[in-house]
Design a binder for these strands. Structure first.
Lengths: 201, 201, 201, 201
DNA sequence: GATGAATGAGGTTTCATTCAT
DNA sequence: CATGAATGAAACCTCATTCAT
């Protein structure tokens, strides 16, 4: 079981992303995923322990990569403006090219945080969220240290503003059937956030 | 059926808020609500059409009141700063006094938007969200008209920033078991948002 | 759940006895029991925790009664011959009047001993078997003490002989479609066993 | 298919004996047998028609040999005492050296008798049991003819006593984790049975 | 109105068996 | 011959909803 990285493994994960996005986790039957992936129901259980494991694996595989890449690129940048731009850009371009994944992340991930999960699963999920928040915190700290952000800024509120604004932008993009180009919002959002966070002139 | 406003009607709605908050909508069985409300399972169906109807009604009843009050108070205020402060304050104080409701709103409302719902239900939900967004849009427009906000501000982005920042603050408060006082964040958030939105000096 | 002693509870237990007897535990689907009991599948789970719980309850209810009665009657008797006659007679008359139960006891009970069961269940099953063996041991001891049985008799072997002979008689009766009258074997078996156990003249 | 007598054929049968003994027929998955036998799942179906066929073949192969040997040796003996001693000894020594097989015989064979089996299978199983019983019947008849056993003995009851006593001894030995030496019980059991069956002095 | 026992459709998961390699 | 990934029927169990009392 859990033979990662087979052709079918990917097919199932992609199929799951699609149907989870359309129907939501609870409204999705395993049969639906199997049909979409063009495999038999039982085949799914050769690659995943359970329906929940599909969801968890999906986050793990697909967010793990984004996070690792984002961490690397953001840390490479020197000035806080570049750091923040990189974060927004990478996040938006990743989600823009897989809107189904974006849906699943927005609408299932946070729900998971709250539910009864076993220790291992819980840790996996929490780590993903924590890494994301750490990255934002790193940017906030850089901004303060570099004298660009208001030194009296509450770092938590700064985090809420950055995370919340980006999150809501993506959510809105998804809800409006992606009628606007997400990437076109990178620079305007960057300016807006920088303006909100920076030291009063 | 659906003879609203009985004593039991309220009891069921309150019970549902509590158990939805704790277990999430899908993990909540109707029996659990009935037990919490101290009524028989069948009684629930004298007051609500279905389990989903409980959730919808809950939003309708509990958010409707908040929205109406918020709309009234915000419109009363003249300057944009007061308007925004009023919005944040009313929202936070309402949620702070009923954290279970806050949980349900944060974790179930947006999910609902996406699911297959009948026409009537869909409209009811959408209207709640629309009113909320309108209120924010009204504030943004006031800020621009009053020359306080940057005139080149994209009103959509402004909305995302306000909505997203407040939303994330509440979410974080909930996830951290409400370890901080939500109301203490009203002024800091107000300043942060105003700073981000206002006309460059 | 586990509302013992309802009309349906009895109906399900009787239905289960019948179909377990015919098909064996593993070949019996819950649906079959439900159909036989003329209830819906789900109803079964109002009265029993699981399919296994039906089997356990069946033993508990139906053997518990027999054992209690047998213990009382056997202890009442003074001489070992009467004790043994009482044991055989009670056992045979009970099984003869419910051959389906006899089937289930013969073919499922001992299997259960060996399988992975939770603590509580295991104890329940083991206690039933233990009580049965204790009763036989009591008779063997009485026979020795009263000077009727061979004083050098190995009590374990005596137990095997009594238990095994009776058990095989019942099994054979079941396998031959109950073509002979079980009760007609009480006296002959009694004599045979007494002869085998008694002190050499 | 069913090209018997390969090295793998034996391996599978031995593996099956082991896992059937440990988990029981129904709790045993074909995969488990394959793993134990160190062959692929599919290989099993080159040698056996089905899971059930493994069980049937197992009885056929392993009991067939014992029975043939026992029949020969028992018939060789002249006096009934020697015949019975031989029967008990051969049976016990065979089972003692393969307790897993003993488990399977005790706990699965009789179950099989009752289940829906195809004609061929049913006959195979029945023949094994019949031969065993015939052997016992032969001994009983010899005992009566030789004037050693009570001439009024009911041959069926005699059979039940011999078969049942030996069976229960073996079962008890298995259930008690084989804590006693089975072969040490041959003489005591022989004496006990002879005493029970012989003509009153 | 209120009850809660009963219903039964539907969901996840298992596993004996097959078959392309 | 041998493999083991794939299949899909079938099983147990849950739970929203109903309805006789």
């Amino acid at each position: 079981m859990a033979k990662k990285r087979g052709e079918k493994y990917e097919a199932i994960l992609n199929a799951a992303t699609k149907v989870f996005a359309q129907y939501g986790y609870h409204q999705t039957q395993v049969t639906k995923i199997a049909k979409e992936a063009q495999v038999a129901d039982g085949t799914i259980y050769l690659y995943f322990k359970s329906k929940e494991d599909i969801l968890i694996s999906l986050f793990d595989e697909k967010m793990g990569g984004l996070l690792a890449a984002a961490e690397e690129k953001v840390l490479e940048q020197q000035d806080v403006e570049s750091k923040l731009r990189t974060l927004i850009f990478m996040q938006f371009s990743y989600l823009a090219q897989d809107p189904d994944l974006a849906m699943v992340i927005k609408f299932e991930l946070r729900q998971l945080e709250l539910r009864q999960l076993n220790e291992v699963t819980r840790n996996k999920i929490n780590e993903l969220l924590r890494r994301h928040l750490h990255l934002i915190d790193h940017i906030v700290k850089s901004g303060i240290d570099q004298g660009v952000f208001n030194p009296e800024l509450d770092p938590f509120l700064a985090r809420y503003m950055i995370f919340g604004t980006l999150d809501e932008t993506v959510t809105s993009w998804l809800m409006k059937d992606r009628k606007f180009d997400l990437l076109s919002k990178v620079e305007p959002l960057l300016n807006l956030l920088l303006n909100g966070l920076k030291r009063a002139a």
